[in-house]
């Protein structure tokens, strides 16, 4: 875009983004209904930082990802990307934002070689420069030049995902969306790819939005974490706060229910198993959206929707009774700090 000095190191600025999908009406006189996929999300992300977004299927995390990459237009709200704060609609197609999705096999064109796939992201860069940049990107993701002439079906899943990452970084974007980018990979490969992503970020200062249902992976790579439930952010905290004490009952429950590996000294782990499943995003509950499943909900919670407020510095929570539901273990770890 235009050559102005960067106004700040903010590379993603989302203000009150809303995305509703209209549903087909059941009859001429039937009310208009819509799926509230994303309902008022505001987020800022600095360069070199990773924002993790975690939540269950249907919570709106992938729709949010599609909004910040310009694949969907928001119903309302503003989304600015890059160091110059360009609206996403204008930045679309400029390579400011890149994305890596869950299934690398379907993300790569089966008729293009690895080199062609990566070079395609370079747009107008031509000649020797183009070749050099592709070589660099291949090397950065740990693939030897021989891989360049191969086709996607000749690669393993992990190698395919490396190609997708190479394609995302080759044009040096300000922001990369990683939507369940490691979810389909085996545990040992996941660790490798996460490590690779961390290393690339240290080298280039690219910001990541890391979307996953896997709390463990999100925690591992993120500087700050946002927990989404039914289209809203219910808790947003620096990663360190995530280790000590979560405040929203949903976040606490989400973390407690994660399957854990037996370890010495952890014979009995307290867990909060939520009943039921998230309600429909077509007609979200009137009060707090989590109230129908919340173990500590009161009448007040069911009638008045809480706002996202700052509980402690940088730690936002959307709850009337923040911090009241705890894991005894987390409380203990807190006391020791």
């Amino acid at each position: 875009m235009t050559n102005v000095t960067p106004r700040s190191d903010i590379v993603l600025d989302v203000q009150d983004a809303v995305k509703h999908y209209a549903l087909r009406r059941r009859g001429l006189r039937a009310p208009r209904r819509s799926v509230h996929a994303v309902d008022g999300v505001s987020i800022r992300l600095h360069s070199g930082q990773t924002l993790g977004i975690v939540g269950e299927s249907g919570c709106g995390k992938s729709t949010f990802g599609r909004l910040i990459t310009g694949l969907e237009t928001p119903t309302s709200g503003t989304i600015r990307v890059g160091a110059h704060g360009v609206p996403i609609a204008a930045a679309h197609g400029t390579g400011t934002v890149q994305a890596v999705f869950q299934d690398p096999a379907s993300a790569l064109d089966p008729r293009m070689t690895v080199r062609e796939s990566i070079a395609e992201a370079l747009g107008k860069v031509a000649g020797r420069e183009r070749e050099r940049r592709v070589d660099e990107a291949l090397a950065a993701v740990g693939l030897t030049p021989e891989f360049g002439v191969r086709y996607p079906h000749e690669l393993s899943g992990g190698q395919q995902q490396r190609v997708c990452i190479a394609r995302a970084i080759v044009d040096r974007p300000d922001l990369i969306l990683l939507d369940e980018a490691v979810s389909s990979l085996d545990a040992s490969l996941q660790a490798q790819i996460l490590h690779l992503l961390e290393r690339l970020q240290q080298d280039t200062g690219t910001a990541y939005v890391f979307i996953s249902h896997d709390l463990r992976a999100v925690r591992q790579v993120s500087h700050s974490v946002a927990v989404m439930y039914l289209g809203q952010v219910v808790e947003q905290a620096p990663a360190e706060a995530f280790d000590r004490g979560l405040l929203h009952p949903y976040a606490v429950a989400l973390r407690s229910t994660e399957p854990r590996i037996l370890d010495e000294g952890t014979e009995h782990v307290e867990r909060i198993v939520l009943t039921g499943e998230p309600p429909s995003a077509v007609s979200p509950p009137a009060g707090c959206r989590f109230a129908p499943r919340c173990p500590i909900a009161e009448d007040h919670c069911r009638s008045v929707a809480p706002d996202l407020v700052e509980a402690t510095s940088g730690h936002l929570v959307r709850c009337h009774k923040p911090g009241e539901l705890t894991l005894s273990g987390v409380a203990r770890a807190d006391a020791e700090v």
């Binding site: 269950e56 299927s57 249902h213 709390l215 429950a253 989400l254 229910t257 994660e258 399957p259 867990r271 198993v273 939520l274 009943t275 499943e277």
Partner: peptide
């Protein structure tokens, strides 16, 4: 999903 996974386990 994780919370449903916990229920099934």
């Amino acid at each position: 999903d994780v919370t449903v996974q916990a229920q099934v386990i």
